[in-house]
Design a protein around this nucleic acid. Structure first.
Length: 843
DNA sequence: ATAGGGTTAG
């Protein structure tokens, strides 16, 4: 089975680098470029540092004023004692300090990434009245750029009169480090305009920027220009070109450059391997690797790391193991980056066991090691293990980064562990990493998957303030809108999809169709469905389920057949959709035939959901004893849903005797679910068996059961308003109440009597009527009528099935207020128009 | 003193 390849193709270079840039600019310490160079602190310098610190302690301060303060400061710099160097700089008389001394201190600041110290030196220079010439200015720029303060560096850069190419390159690469490639290009153009003689450094830097920006034309122009300047066989420049072409996906051009490059070094080879892998051609990458082995080229750490990535993408764990062996021979196996990649290779090739072994045997572990292993657990569905590892990692003092956070949020989403997810959310807020797209998407997904679509939507709105969503964001937030039936918000997102050309993303397109289906806009859903060029199983299943929910059984079957004709094999989920569609349209024969096709043509063993559809279908169409026999003959144990479907049928067809028998099964399987008691009570009261109602009520009363609160919601001006049964806390509560009372009396005038039996409360009729009035779907509908402009369809969603009285009232409301009402309950859609409902009694 | 290839995520 093909493993999921890392999403290298889908992430365009600029996204990838923008992402990096946002981190870099936020955390210069981790990502800012130069770290102290180890050569600076070699042992012989350390010994001189010892002598120096002894002598310095005996030297009188006055001595510095007259003697060689410059030499002393430089000596402190050489041994890396920045504190002492700056201290002396402060103490020395300004006229004595030479420009080169300032430079040495600034260099050390840059090497040690000490921005504060660098600023101090800068202010000493200024207060000493030293004129900032080309050399000193360049060093200042170097210090600022190295320490991550590009703005300050730029200010100085702009004031330097005679700028050498080195300084320009510094500025150009500085912007590239923080991901501001546009500004790098700007600098490059300015260099050309001013006739600065660009060099090989300029080209390698700018080619990276062009690649990151996806600027094909400009990169190709630079290629021509560098040939003209004679850099065509400069291997560093050609290597940059190779990477550029791989980045813009011109694999052939990269290959040609490589083939014609006589002076290949290991970086050329590595660029080829990684370039092929990034372009989803891992086999080609492996061929290059074989050629390299054949020619006896000395491979390095990067080679084996790239080859491991190729192994992952070919799902070739055997070759991966061979590379592991080779790396042991070459002594790369103790290198942490290698071990991390190896761990990841085993885990992605489905061998978590060996990944764990690598992790356990690693001498040193970084956040990457932990994250890779956590991702490995999550990939195998071992979410709890992943969360445990995450805790362990923190307890060992390893700081999670955005990779860890995205991974663990994904594990929390799969696991349904909201508590862990909340902890991670707090960590995100506390560590200011909410501006990362991966983190945001994972967070929204976690919140949504844990059943909080409205909160996910809130996060999305907040995210828009500082981030531009991508296809993943959209594919994650659309289902949240769909589950809330938040059509207005969904339409805004549809607009975003159009503006940003996201519809070609299969997940986005499918989610968009699903949105319109779940918002009750079926025609629009179909229109968009037809626009999907390559419809996959999900696209079809969404459409079939949509027809089913709206009671268009025939259309669902037509779509199902169309799908099979298109050569797409249905799976068990699509069979649930189609059987469900049959049951909501009362298509008994068709449903039965499909149930047989599923088993005998498609070899899919029916699950509880499929049986439930058939029971539902038999029960609705009045085949109650057949349904009973069907349940009895099931090869798997029926659950409460299955018996419950039959119980519903008993109610529709007024079979009290069977209902009592069925109800006992249901009560045994789900004694806590009050819905079933209410159902039986309604069956009794419809048969006017008041004595039985009373007995049942006593039975429930003794249990102290809590009713599952009904709740309905409606979107008004992009905001979802939620109503709970009997809740009077809403701001417009009084207005809603009087509207409902007004409607109620009009209904009575027309000879309507409320269906008292839908309320199982021991009270007089008036009180019953009041309770009915407080049903959440009525409140939401009334709120819609009060707040939505005339002519706009009222779209209400309910978490349970719509109550019979509310259903009656909705019909009446649609007639008297001349409004279309679309209600989605837990089961299906009801379109109310001119006093009738589309469900025709098939609930 | 600046440049080219390599590891973890939704």
């Amino acid at each position: 089975m093909a493993k999921t390849a890392p999403p290298k193709i889908s992430v365009s270079p600029q996204n990838k680098n923008h992402r990096d840039s946002s981190i870099k600019s936020r955390n210069a310490f981790f990502f800012g470029k130069p770290y102290p160079k180890s050569t600076l602190f070699s042992s012989h310098l350390h010994s001189s540092y010892t002598t120096l610190s002894i002598s310095s302690s005996v030297i009188e301060a006055e001595e510095y004023k007259i003697s060689d303060c410059n030499r002393k400061i430089c000596e402190f710099c050489e041994v890396g004692n920045l504190r002492k160097a700056i201290e002396l700089l402060h103490m020395s008389p300004k006229i004595k300090i030479e420009s080169s001394t300032y430079c040495s201190v600034l260099q050390l600041c840059a090497d040690t990434n000490s921005l504060q110290d660098g600023k101090q030196v800068h202010s000493i220079i200024c207060s000493n009245g030293v004129s900032i010439d080309g050399v000193l200015g360049t060093k200042l720029v170097f210090m600022y750029v190295s320490c991550g303060d590009i703005r300050e560096g730029r200010l100085i850069f702009d004031k330097i009169a005679n700028r050498k190419v080195f300084l320009w390159n510094l500025m150009l690469t500085g912007y590239a480090w923080i991901g501001d490639f546009e500004e790098s290009v700007h600098i490059f153009r300015k260099m050309l305009d001013l006739g600065v003689e660009v060099n090989s450094h300029t080209f390698s830097s700018i080619l990276k920027c062009f690649a990151a920006l996806g600027s094909r034309k400009e990169g190709e122009w630079a290629h021509g220009y560098l040939l003209k300047l004679g850099y065509g066989s400069h291997n560093i420049v050609v290597n940059s070109l190779i990477s550029f072409y791989f980045n813009i996906r011109k694999v052939e051009s990269a290959r040609k450059l490589f083939d014609e490059l006589s002076d290949r070094d290991i970086i050329s080879w590595n660029s080829m391997v990684s370039g092929y892998v990034a372009n989803d051609l891992p086999e080609e990458g492996l061929l290059v690797f074989k050629e390299l082995l054949y020619l006896g080229v000395n491979l390095d750490l990067s080679t084996v790391i790239s080859v491991l990535a190729a192994c992952v993408n070919c799902d070739n764990v055997l070759l991966g193991r061979a590379v592991h062996a080779l790396a042991i021979k070459a002594c790369f196996d103790r290198r942490i980056t290698f071990a991390n990649t190896l761990l990841d290779m085993y885990s992605k090739c489905g061998d978590l066991h060996d990944a764990i072994l690598v992790f356990e045997k690693m001498g040193e572990r970084s956040v990457v090691s932990w994250t890779s292993l956590i991702a490995g657990y999550a990939r195998e569905g071992l979410s709890e293990g992943a969360i445990r590892l995450f805790q362990k990692m923190k307890s060992e003092g390893v700081r999670p980064d955005i990779f860890t956070i995205s991974t663990i949020l994904h594990a929390c989403a799969c696991n349904g562990s909201l508590e862990d997810g909340k902890d991670v959310h707090n960590y995100i807020k506390g560590n200011d990493i909410q501006s990362n797209l991966f983190v945001c998407n994972s967070l929204m997904d976690m919140v949504f998957k844990n059943g909080h679509p409205n909160e996910a939507l809130g996060l999305f709105v907040a995210m828009l303030q500082e981030l531009k969503p991508d296809g993943r964001t959209i594919a994650c937030i659309l289902p949240a809108c769909a589950s809330l039936a938040a059509l207005d918000r969904g339409r805004e997102i549809h607009g975003f999809i159009l503006r940003n050309d996201c519809f070609s993303d299969q997940h986005v397109a499918n989610a968009l169709v699903d949105l319109y289906v779940k918002c009750g806009a079926l025609a629009l859903a179909r229109l968009l469905f037809d626009m999907i060029l390559t419809k996959d199983l999900i696209s079809w299943t969404v459409m079939i389920a949509g027809y089913g929910m709206h009671g268009f059984g025939k259309e669902a079957i037509a779509a199902f057949n169309e799908m099979r004709q298109a050569g797409i094999e249905p799976d068990e989920v699509s069979f649930i959709s189609i059987l469900y569609a049959c049951s909501h349209s009362g298509l008994l024969n068709e449903g039965w035939i499909l149930f047989n096709i599923m088993q005998h043509e498609c070899s899919i063993a029916p699950k509880l959901e499929h049986y439930a559809c058939i029971v539902d279908l038999l029960a609705r169409t009045g085949k109650l004893s057949m349904a009973y026999q069907f349940i009895k003959s099931m090869p798997i144990e029926p659950d409460a849903t299955i018996w419950g479907a039959l119980l519903c049928g008993c109610r529709i067809h007024h079979d009290v005797k069977l209902a009592e028998k069925v109800a006992e099964h249901v009560f045994e399987l789900e004694p806590e679910n009050t819905g079933y008691y209410v159902l039986l009570a309604n069956i009794y009261s419809e048969a006017e068996k008041w004595e039985e109602v009373k007995k049942l009520r006593e039975r429930i009363g003794g249990r102290g059961l809590k009713k599952n609160p009904g709740c309905s919601w409606i979107e008004v001006k992009g905001k979802v308003h939620i109503f709970v049964s009997g809740d009077g806390s809403h701001l417009q509560s009084q207005k809603i109440k009087s509207l409902l009372n007004e409607l109620r009396s009009k209904m009575k005038e027309e000879g309507y009597f409320p269906k008292m039996e839908y309320s199982l409360i021991n009270a007089d009729d008036l009180e019953k009527e009041m309770t009915l009035c407080g049903h959440s779907e009525k409140l939401a509908m009334a709120f819609g009528i009060l707040n939505l402009p005339p002519g706009k369809t009222i779209r209400v969603t309910k978490n349970l099935r719509v109550c019979g009285d509310c259903h009656e009232m909705a019909k009446f409301m649609s007639k008297i207020t001349r409004r279309e009402i679309v209600m989605r309950d837990s089961n299906r859609f009801h379109h109310f128009k001119d006093g009738t409902c589309s469900c025709r009694g098939f609930w």
